[in-house]
Design a protein around this nucleic acid. Structure first.
Length: 296
DNA sequence: AGGGATCACAACCCGCCTTC
DNA sequence: GAAGGCGGGTTGTGATCCCT
């Protein structure tokens, strides 16, 4: 295939259709009309000799060829975007861009209220999108220019290709409902293990940080409720006898009474992660510094 | 009804040729 | 070599058709 005969803008259209699963939606984000996207797709189809997308109900599903193409295309476009951005100064007052962050809802609750007021004050035309990305996809999305920063629990040796900086440290505490009889005494290990626990995890199964720590101590707690979102903690804990082991900052934020754990709390460190690529982007580095300052 | 494909038309781009 | 005119090709738009 002769590259000079291909309009490389077709790859931008390809990426938009793949991302949004719709020609109409792609036309909206590219600020061109639906026929223009349809026409561009027709040209790319001729170049590739493949349908690339087929209609399935109201969605455009990628063919196997399109699925094979999307990774390299995203990577190439990410590098082009980066090369065009390199060396450009970031002026928050006039800048207009969207920052994409990956973090769990618990981290959002702790970090975003602290840093977003300053982001909107300094950079009124910038937008922040926060959503959780699977750990295994973070590096790929950062390389493709689809993710700027990620905040996650520090794990030794994780993702050696990512750069990181400690964001905040905390300790775990045991949260119970107001008036819980446990609040009138000191919580010992027997009392802790006798409790029914609420465990929050985005995964369907597997041990949590605390469970792994207890395992090392040779004991096991009783998890009777497992849920995905920390939003559930406040309403559930306040109406039941359940206990939850949470970071102290979050316990304070929820306004629930809490007790120190009857064993040395494992260290909880949240790290801020970014890619080599983002390290060259003055805008991302500006946001990184702002987040670090806001949670100090 | 929503959304992709197609058509006719207009605007723009680019290569080629001519003139200076 | 630079500038201008011409013609063909490409791409975007609105309108409309047709499929799911």
């Amino acid at each position: 295939m002769q590259l000079h005969r291909i309009d490389l803008n077709l790859l931008v259209v390809f990426e938009a259709i793949y991302t949004h699963g719709s020609i109409t939606r792609a036309s909206q984000v590219l600020f061109i009309t639906q026929p223009a996207v349809s026409n561009a797709l027709a040209r790319l189809r001729r170049h590739c000799g493949d349908e690339l997308f087929y209609r399935s109900g109201r969605h455009m599903q990628p063919t196997a060829r399109a699925q094979a193409m999307i990774g390299p295309v995203r990577q190439a476009l990410g590098m082009i975007r980066q090369s065009l951005q390199d060396g450009m100064e970031f002026v928050p007052e006039t800048a207009s861009r969207t920052f994409r962050l990956s973090m769990a809802d618990i981290v959002e609750a702790i970090v975003l209220p602290r840093c977003l007021p300053e982001v909107t004050r300094q950079a009124p035309d910038c937008r922040v999108h926060s959503y959780p990305v699977e750990r295994s996809n973070i590096l790929q999305q950062m390389d493709a220019g689809q993710l700027d920063l990620a905040i996650d629990v520090a794990q030794p040796g994780r993702e050696p290709l990512l750069l990181h900086q400690p964001l905040l440290q905390d300790r775990y505490v045991c949260v119970v409902r107001p008036g819980h009889p446990l609040l009138e005494q000191e919580l010992d290990m027997d009392g802790y293990l006798a409790l029914q626990h609420l465990h929050i995890s985005s995964r369907r199964q597997g041990s949590g940080h605390i469970d792994l720590h207890l395992e090392q101590l040779g004991v096991q707690r009783q998890v009777s409720v497992r849920a995905r979102h920390y939003l559930l903690v406040q309403p559930l804990i306040s109406k039941t006898e359940l206990a939850a082991t949470l970071p102290e900052r979050l316990a304070r934020q929820l306004g629930l009474p809490y007790l120190p754990l009857p064993f040395p709390s494992p260290a909880l460190t949240l790290n801020l992660y970014w890619s080599q690529r983002a390290g060259q982007d003055p805008a991302v580095m500006w946001l990184k510094e702002l987040i670090l300052q806001s949670v100090e």
